[in-house]
Design a protein around this nucleic acid. Sequence first.
RNA 1: CGGGGCGUAGCGCAGCCUGGUAGCGCGCCUGCCUUGGGCGCAGGAGGUCGGAGGUUCGAAUCCUCUCGCCCCGACCA
Length: 581
Amino acid sequence: MRMSKSFVPTLKEVPADATVASHQLLVRAGYIRQLSAGIYSILPLGQRAILKITGIVREEMDAIGAQEFYLPALNPREIWEESGRWSVMGENMFRLKDRKGADLCLAMTHEEIFTVLARAELRSYRQLPQTWYQIQTKFRDEPRPKSGLLRVRQFTMKDSYSFDMNREGLDQAFEAHRQAYVKIFGRCGLKTVQVDAHSGAMGGSGSTEFMVATDAGEDLIASCEACGYAANTEKAESRVETPDKYKAAGASPALDEFATPGVTTIEALSKAPHGVAADQQLKTLVYLGDEQPLIAIVRGDDQLNEAKLQTASGASVLRQAHAEEIQKWLGAKPGSLGGVGLGEKANLRVFVDSRLAGLSGLVTGANKDGFHLRNVSVPRDLAHAKSVDLRTVNAGEGCPRCGKPLVVGKALEVGHIFKLGTRYSESMGARVLDEGGKEVPIVMGSYGIGVERILAGAVELHHDQDGIRFPMSIAPFHLALLPLQMQDAAVRDAAEKIYLDLTAAGVEVLLDDRDERAGVKFKDADLIGLPLRIAVGKKGLADGKIEWKVRGGKDVEFVPLAEVVARVQAAVRAGGGTLRK
RNA sequence: CGGGGCGUAGCGCAGCCUGGUAGCGCGCCUGCCUUGGGCGCAGGAGGUCGGAGGUUCGAAUCCUCUCGCCCCGACCA
């Protein structure tokens, strides 16, 4: 491609609203432009990179026997009602009406639509297993789009779905996807870690996320360098010492209500005149799980993990209660809440973090504004509460497997694989006959990759002060060819010949034939980030040579014109790129 | 949703507090010059000051409402 005829709008200055590297660089280098919050236009360079990525995804999916589909993004309400997700998805789903007033939505994912196909067409165990996929646009009305392509409202997803007779089949499909994903991300130049994850609105029995460690990411993952344990902090567990340090000597003293006027936070209660240490306090939080009240109790210095509460309660939609709701159920405002005495209220489900099991001598709110209770014994006073893991792990706590300290770091989710089981086949009636002629629900899996996130993640991982440093495999072109003196006919002609020769040899070349100064071309080439660069200048040409430089490398090497084509072809292959036929 | 910030030329910003001519840098156009890391000089084009209403003789500036965007906390490829 010739730069003089191309739309590659590079910018000298960093866009004001971009904070993360991938956002800044993709805008500056002319790959993307923002249309609205979380909605981006992909420009020609960006589209070429995206096509490289989807090409890799397609190859690896095809390699595990998956078949490519293309399903509608515009969906009728009815099928989402069948799975129950018309309401579960809440405000995250874009909804609209057609001219007749019928409800439609823009699909966030395609479990429902693929299940509709499966139930209509799959009748027998003989037709299984199947793996179906598509590369298609998804719509999610994120509450807070951010960081350029990292979190958007419209994006491209590779989503696939496996259909099996039983658990074993699902396990095989899951494993095939895991291995395909490792190859995909590896080929795209991403270093990923696999972590245990929360399944969220997808449902199902288990899931693994593929994460790229980067500060630009929004997830926190806990990992153990000693044994390899890794989990999203939504799910991660840890070993913590929880001695019964506030237990009274002798018989457990009775509950004692005491006045704490104006004290509504853990921190305030820990200060004078009360001086109750945070680890002696119980933090009581009120949620609604599928519109039913839930009480969650964790230690005062711990953080409640909402994902764990959701899992423990079995709720598909979880939200914090409003102050009025809390007042109605517990009779007090936040700050004076507690789980003691809630056993009689049958409509309130109470959960207490498992680290608190057996402890006594604790302090909690009295469900009476301005009062707390001391001498709380969990086995005696919170016997009605279900003991479950509710807390969020912290860095330095013991690995649940080996006990060595956990490390917590930020990461970007680029892929997620789920064992759905029969979550959709049962709710939507997708069944086949087994060998015995008995009707059984299909066992399903669901597997997703965020395509633009691969692009952005690669930029996060591969850039420097001067710009992007794309891996060969996903770079929009293999090589930048820079004639340095456009006024010099010999330089122009030499560059033109190299361009034609390389193109004929299957190399994707971006020829900077603009009438610009050398400095401008160097700067733009660095910014755009193609892995190879050939400069054609008067100096080298006098000796019949060009200047060869690898993006990010230090050295410039003079290479004879006759060797250029073979040299470039070898470098493209070595870098994981593909020559055009 | 809770909290904070910003909307002025294609991009980055000043002007606003204290009302009166809309400005700077980059980019763009023309000419000359220069030509190996975002050259130089000269001339030029380009603006509903996010929108609506109000106060005022007069509003980018003050007031009210509203829309949009960004960032920090709760949600997900």
